[in-house]
């Protein structure tokens, strides 16, 4: 019988302390409620004819006392849980990015070096890892209990989830959101390896170029370079028939949209620009970017995003 769950990430012990606090608070309250219930049930049973004395008439002092006590305990728990949650969902800088695509009923994982795996995820120990999650069909949920993390995987958007594994080993990966017949088969494993083992694993599973290199091929093949320039330098009269925004250095920079809104060009934004360009069009360019929805798969879009991210900003002279 197993009562305890491995703590294999930096946030796992924190999550467990919070859990422990909740358990202790619950036990205290349970002892209070069950204790009073049993004591009263015994002491004030109808057949016990002892004198009950004066029965309390004014109750509001007690009511206010236990209302405030309850609120204070609850507020403490709220703050504790919220603090950890906020840190869990704020992606750290400089994390190793890995792309996850969920589909009925498997997990497809792509590493930046181009390595692909299905239903398993190899990660190095002691490094911050950021997962970019998306789905090809229904809503899935990427959950690793040993890391105490999970996040829904939604079609048509990128969600982010990060962790830092602390203990080499193999851990369960579950889909936690009902996704159809094969829901319970949409499981896999997360393999946490030492840094050296991880490098070896990457080398042994070397693929046809990094994700960005594969993206570059798609960039040429799908005609993106026709407007955006061969290195994403942007289109103007000199090198292209139509004006198109430069893509080099786009990632992480602010973009002004036609409606005046300013957004930061993150993975999700670039993803949307490729598949649903009419939704958030950039200002000061003609609205001619076609949609690649149905032409490119989520895997392909991931590669393109990786390529665009790899394009360094033009050097300032």
């Amino acid at each position: 019988m197993k009562f305890w769950l491995a703590q294999a990430s930096t946030s796992a012990p924190e999550s467990d302390y919070l859990m422990l606090a909740l358990v202790l608070a619950s036990i205290a309250i349970l002892i209070l409620v069950f204790g009073l219930m049993l004591i009263y049930a015994f002491k004030y049973r109808a057949t016990n004819r002892m004198d009950r004395g004066q029965i309390m008439k004014k109750t509001w002092r007690l009511e206010i006392a236990w209302t405030i006590a309850t609120m204070a305990v609850f507020f403490g728990l709220f703050v504790w849980g919220a603090d950890l949650y906020v840190r869990l969902f704020r992606p750290p800088a400089g994390a190793l990015q890995i792309y996850v695509v969920g589909k009925q009923w498997m997990w497809k994982i792509q590493h930046e070096g181009g390595q692909r795996e299905i239903n398993s995820l190899h990660v190095p120990v002691g490094r911050k890892i950021q997962l970019l999650l998306t789905s090809e069909d229904v809503i899935h949920d990427f959950a690793v209990p040993a890391f105490r993390i999970k996040h829904d995987v939604l079609p048509g958007r990128y969600e982010s989830l990060w962790f830092e594994a602390t203990m080499p080993g193999t851990y369960h990966l579950f889909c936690n959101q009902l996704c159809g017949t094969g829901h319970s088969r949409m499981v896999g494993e997360v393999v946490v390896m030492s840094g050296a083992d991880y490098e070896n694993w990457l080398a042994a599973n070397g693929a046809a170029g990094t994700l960005a290199e594969q993206g570059k091929i798609l960039f040429m093949r799908n005609g993106c370079s026709g407007c955006h320039g061969s290195n994403g330098a942007g289109g103007n009269q000199s090198n292209s028939t139509v004006p198109a925004p430069p893509l080099a250095g786009l990632y992480g920079s602010p973009v002004t949209l036609v409606d005046g809104q300013v957004v930061i060009a993150d993975d999700g934004y670039i993803h949307d620009c490729i598949l649903t360009p009419e939704k958030r069009r950039v200002a000061s360019y003609p609205p001619i970017m076609p949609s690649f929805s149905g032409i490119l798969s989520e895997d392909d879009v991931l590669k393109l995003v990786a390529y665009i991210k790899s394009l360094a900003p033009e050097k300032q002279l």
């Binding site: 859990m19 608070a25 709220f78 849980g81 603090d83 906020v86 869990l88 993390i149 999970k150």
Partner: peptide
């Protein structure tokens, strides 16, 4: 009812606590 509801209510706090819910959600 009081006993079971208390236990149900208390565990409701676990899933109302954000970080704990991340682990417990949909389990």
């Amino acid at each position: 009812f009081i006993g079971l509801f208390t236990m149900g209510g208390l565990t409701g706090l676990y899933v109302a606590t954000l970080a704990a819910d991340v682990h417990l959600h949909d389990t």
